[in-house]
Design a protein around this nucleic acid. Structure first.
Lengths: 189, 189
DNA sequence: AGAAGGACCAGTGGTCCGTA
DNA sequence: AGAAGGACCAGTGGTCCGTA
């Protein structure tokens, strides 16, 4: 379980009070399997979305309509229609690379969460650390993040986050520059 | 081969005359390999676009930018910038299913062109006939046109034409209905 | 009439920034 | 301050319809 416990928050449930819809509680850094206020945390939400995509695909196929292969606006809309009010596009996109780390190397993902929690770091710091870990993982494959996303079933349905792609690209350029500077056989400048 | 001869029309070339840009000559039905006014015909244009896509992909990859896998607006724009004034999106999309027939069964495509030409049919009639042929080809695969496009390298870069998908869907429904009506083992109604 | 293609439009991918 | 998410925007997929 990717970042916490069981069910979506119901902070928004009792509308009888006439109050505005409450925001979800902010995510916090947790260890694997740890429950937070009896609800899920970030990574679980991303896994949930995979199921919503599958539903949307099944419906489209049955109707003979164009069938989405990615996490499109249509899928987010469907999730919301199905009552998943805790899911929204900007938030989910914000954490996709954390989900990627978890998909690509679960042990490493768990270790990083434990470490960040011990240090008392906030979600933002953990999220930043996830970028570094994913970039390292892509190194043996020439930092080809598109290929790595594409080959993993759970990951291939997500658009590669812009920032992650930029980081991988920068790292590849660094490596090429230094290997050619040191007389290596990298691509010429 | 794909529908005519050698080079794009130069009807638009001499702008010295101060005239407006001329339209391309309308496509006409040709046999495989037949030259028309010393220029290409429809199917060749589609094959050309594959090369433009490859270029766009190479540039995007080098820059570490998002890399298109399909024939997007970006590719059409690139083709135009490279001077391919004879290519435009609505025209090319109009003939994608004809290109598909050619990719999937070249002999059959050639035979159909010969037949339509003999009958003196116009481009529109040939185009309609192409729909029927492609739908027939998809039958053994359960009319799954998306799968068939996806598996063919040349074809997978094109969005499945809406009308073609609808025709395949209708045909599948027909088959299901009649097989269940006749006591076959199709999906129940 | 038959066909080429400029130009439009609804809904997308992407994410900023006013909000709590 | 740190984070959730409504709402916006440039550029897309799709194709109509005024044009030649």
């Amino acid at each position: 379980n990717g970042g916490g416990g069981e069910q979506p928050s119901r902070a928004l449930a009792k509308r009888g009070g006439g109050r505005k819809r409450q925001r979800e509680h902010p995510f916090i850094v947790t260890e694997a399997g740890e429950v937070v206020r009896g609800k899920n945390n970030g990574l679980d939400y991303l896994f949930h979305l995979y199921k919503f995509l599958t539903q949307v695909q099944k419906i489209a196929k049955k109707r003979g309509e164009k069938c989405p292969t990615k996490m499109t606006n249509k899928v987010f809309r469907y999730a919301k229609e199905e009552g998943a009010n805790h899911i929204n596009k900007p938030k989910m996109r914000h954490y996709v690379h954390c989900y990627a780390l978890r998909c690509l190397d679960e042990e490493r993902s768990n270790a990083l969460r434990r470490e960040c929690k011990l240090r008392g770091q906030n979600i933002g710091a953990w999220m930043q650390a996830c970028y570094r870990s994913v970039v390292e993982i892509t190194a043996p494959r020439g930092w080809d993040i598109d290929a790595i996303f594409g080959e993993h079933p759970q990951l291939s349905v997500w658009y590669v986050p812009t920032k992650l792609r930029q980081l991988c690209h920068a790292e590849r350029n660094n490596a090429t520059a230094s290997s050619s500077a040191s007389g290596g056989k990298g691509t010429a400048a």
